[in-house]
Design a protein around this nucleic acid. Structure first.
Lengths: 207, 207, 207, 207
DNA sequence: TATGAATGAGCTTTCATTCAT
DNA sequence: TATGAATGAAAGCTCATTCAT
């Protein structure tokens, strides 16, 4: 799944391929993306593509993981969330979310990739790849939720999986809405504050 | 768009076609759905399909609208939401949402159809059909939000479009989560109560 | 072939159908013309269309014949060609050709129809209709050629069928060229004079 | 456009494909030709066909260019036309035309292909291919006309584009007529002499 | 390690024509 | 006399994947 053959390539060529694939997936979504276009843009042969990756889905998962990793790297270390009180928790989360959104706004292709996420998961060919990516991204939110519960910032009266789903759903909706607003850098913090406020209202302990 | 030719068919055959299409769209989403499979299941010729409907998207929109309409009919009249106080508002919403979820759980294919919604909207061929359906479904939530704001149950400090997006996103996530739980009829009310509580926390006026 | 059923229709409806068909055939040629579009434009049912005409080709031939007839009517009576000498013959022909071209320029749809003629004759379904039209139009040229031969304006040393073919081919090429020039009414006579000069050079007796 | 993938095939298979396509295009014209029949006759898969050629039009242009090239090769080098007087010019042209017609009579399918030419140009899908072929064939006539004007064999008092159109139209008509006569090799020279005489009469300077 | 030729199943859509009513 | 529902055949084209080299 991971693709040791791909990783043996000289980094510039890896990047050329990933860049071409990201461009294609971001522009057309998983299903409508054409491997033919990808290999053409990347300048490699079709045989090579299938030598590096098992399938279209494998390529997609690789691209998504790499891009997510890059985003995380750009965001810097995740701040500790389980030290302090609830108020601190939310302020740290808000700060982190703001930075994340700024990074996402700066990488419209990655944003498009994530937006197409639910779209992609429908395709039967996609299932094998899905696990890999979710295993990479969900633990992070799970940890944050657990930390929030520890400091009393997050309600404990509903199943964690539900909290996760809801936060994910809200995040997706907010991202989408945010992108559709073409937000300027100035008003962003206030907007993010509102958004976090809504999430907080949803998952904070009742009263 | 409406499809007068289709509506002239004897109801049993209409149902056979709609059932086949619903099955296919629910199982594969808009893009991956195969008209060939639909006509095979429905037992009609390809020419007939295109005699009844203008395109794949037209068929999809017809199926979705019909199913939505059926769901609404089963739910009965939408209760008035702008009479009474905030507490009443939320209790009425919760009651309605509970009934809606029960109906949805009883129609897993419709649920799948709605779940595939965002998936479908990606396809360029789908755009023409999209408007028709959204015009049918979004006003309802908008009205509910407006009523909630009127009685002080819903915050007015964020743009209505954001409220709409968030509620839609939360609802989608909750539906998905709910379906994955294979909920029994007994514990459902309590779960719904939690879900509504989360929505309420998100969109109720801060403190 | 002729279509007595069609001729029994009230003239306004006949015209509506012919107009719709002319529009379609002129715009798309015989093969690409869609009967569906024709009946839609004409406001009749498909069954009626096939009640009035035997086939697509039958409709086409009817349209072409009618339009040709209309053109001829607008041109007025064909002047006698076999009275006088060769010079008179050519001057009468030139005058007539000029008037014909003027009429054709004023009816771009008919011009388009004629232009698509050779295109249409390729289609196998078209053969039955072809005879009817050619029988209507070729005798005229044949008569003119015969008259020309009688007065010594047209060579007699080649088979009449060849003369006919060549004149037809030249005429078609000239018409096409003329249309592509978007001729203004002023310079038209001089141009026509050149064209007739070329035809004359081709079919006049050598030296 | 050129089709490097096709040219890499072993020549026998290239010929099998070209032969099948020529047969189909000659028999049915561009629009009515069926790629399905071509691939069936050629014994290749549909995917292969689209691997070799970009589109139906691309295939057509390839077939036409190849056949034209073969014809030209069989004709041998084009004789110089601008050396000598008008009489020489016309005798050289006549000789060349005679040889061309003989070659064309020996390749009835190519003749049919050329005959279907105007038919093909109507199809919108055909436009891209048209340029390539016309650029190959029209310069030749243009050069001949220019040479004829240089030696005083061709009139200069009408636009060159008109001369081109007319000669093309006459040639097409004559070819068609000639084919319909099923000419025997014996009487051909005399007939060609008449034909050239007619062209000469049309485009020679008016005494 | 890399190539690219080859494939076949699949897609949506159009159309002239027939025929029961 | 008129309708329009129904159809089947056909169309051009795309694509992820395989595999011999």
């Amino acid at each position: 799944m991971a693709g040791p053959r791909f990783l043996k390539l000289p980094p510039p060529q890896q990047q050329a391929i990933l860049r071409a694939a990201l461009e294609e997936f971001a522009a057309h979504g998983f299903h409508d993306a054409s491997l033919n276009r990808v290999i053409e843009t990347a300048g490699i042969s079709k045989g090579s593509m299938y030598y590096y990756f098992d399938s279209k889905a494998d390529l997609y998962s690789h691209v998504a993981l790499t891009e997510l990793g890059g985003l995380m790297a750009r965001l810097g270390p995740v701040p500790p969330l389980d030290e302090g009180d609830a108020e601190t928790f939310w302020s740290v989360v808000e700060d982190f979310y703001l930075r994340a959104m700024r990074a996402l706004i700066a990488s419209p292709q990655l944003a498009a990739l994530l937006r197409g996420w639910s779209s992609a998961s429908k395709s039967p060919a996609f299932q094998p790849a899905q696990g890999a990516i979710e295993q990479e991204s969900t633990p992070w939110i799970e940890l944050a939720l657990a930390a929030g519960q520890k400091v009393g910032a997050v309600r404990s009266d509903v199943p964690p999986t539900l909290l996760l789903s809801v936060v994910f759903g809200m995040g997706e909706a907010m991202d989408l809405w945010l992108m559709s607003q073409e937000p300027d850098d100035e008003s962003l913090p206030a907007t993010i504050h509102s958004l976090i406020g809504m999430i907080r209202g949803a998952v904070a302990p009742p009263n």
